[in-house]
């Protein structure tokens, strides 16, 4: 088994993963169709699009975050990015009221929310990492503390607003995979394209960044600039995925670590697509399981976390971590 694996080149492994992903997608789209094909394809297609975008966001954000911090067991969720996103939405509903909030232009609303998010995280980074020369771990620790603060603020405000407004808020905070808005999907398309372009151009620099700041600097990487760019990308991706489906924490950690193991290389030009494909297989596969085997008797996140938990136990038992 071990030797067999070593014989496969990263490219072949990527092809196998792509074939598996395609298979899961086909299964998802065509298995057990009861309504008309037209309706099913429309309905499932939209859901599939959401899955694909979330898979891209979560896996790329987690992978870049881990390369940036040279640590394979943390996720961007630890920095409280999603908590800040929730706080921004809560305060918008709190200050504007539910009717005003709902009346806001969707694109405008999203742009404001993401801008606040990016400005806040860039500021934190600029101030602590560049000016004060704090190390990345301290920065992450401060992020953890802020995350708790943001969560507490949101829950305080949620308790203070009236129940109808809370309903509106909850609707936007805990959007499910079924009910993603089309305007969000449009935005996502644009964001995914932009970020893919950036990664395509700079993927080799992430390989070096993963070696740590001193070695990366020695090899000619402008570490501060690359970290700043990564923070913006990660923030936008997490904001996007949180606005699509709410906070998903464990998932990124799972897919990225699977990708490290099955990819067989440290190069981001393979790692990034591999983790995206793993994420697609996981998300779409779990949903097929949920729909056709478990008949919606549980939640998608529970299946994902169950598989994730089992996988991690396996890793620890086989001492792969």
């Amino acid at each position: 088994m071990q030797t067999n694996r070593l014989l496969l080149t990263p490219k072949m492994r990527l092809l196998i993963a792509a074939a598996l992903a395609l298979l899961t997608i086909t299964l998802f789209m065509s298995f057990n169709v009861k309504a008309s094909w037209e309706f099913t394809l429309m309905f499932r297609g939209k859901k599939l699009l959401t899955f694909l975008i979330v898979a891209f966001c979560i896996s790329t954000a987690t992978l870049l975050f881990q390369s940036m911090s040279n640590n394979r067991i943390i996720t961007p969720a630890i920095m409280g990015f999603d908590a800040l996103y929730m706080l921004i939405q809560t305060s918008l509903v709190f200050t504007l009221g539910a009717i005003q909030y709902a009346a806001l232009n969707n694109y405008f609303k999203w742009a404001i929310e993401i801008s606040i998010l990016v400005v806040a995280s860039s500021f934190l980074f600029q101030w602590l990492f560049i000016k004060k020369q704090f190390n990345l771990y301290l920065l992450i620790l401060i992020g953890v503390v802020f995350g708790v603060l943001f969560r507490s603020f949101s829950s305080l405000m949620m308790r203070m607003i009236d129940p109808t407004e809370f309903g509106v808020l909850q609707d936007s905070l805990f959007a499910s995979f079924n009910a993603a808005d089309s305007y969000l999907l449009t935005i996502s398309g644009v964001v995914v394209c932009l970020i893919s372009g950036f990664i395509f151009r700079y993927h080799h620099q992430f390989d070096v960044m993963a070696l740590g700041k001193p070695i990366a600097t020695n090899l000619g990487i402008n570490h501060a600039d690359l970290t700043r760019a990564s923070i913006v990308i990660i923030t936008v991706l997490i904001g996007l995925s949180t606005s699509l489906v709410g906070p998903v924490t464990f998932f990124g950690l799972l897919v990225v670590n699977v990708a490290y193991i099955v990819c067989g290389t440290h190069l981001h030009r393979y790692l990034i697509p591999m983790s995206i494909l793993t994420a697609i297989i996981c998300l779409v596969g779990s949903d097929v399981l949920l729909q056709h085997v478990l008949h919606y008797n549980t939640k998608l996140s529970i299946i994902i976390e169950f598989i994730g938990g089992v996988f991690f136990l396996g890793l620890i038992l086989r001492k792969k971590i």
Partner: peptide, 20 residues
Amino acid sequence: NAKLAKQLAILRQENHIVSR
């Protein structure tokens, strides 16, 4: 910095790499 990397190299005392 990219040009500097062709002119001077440094190896520190402790090096820890997470990538395999």
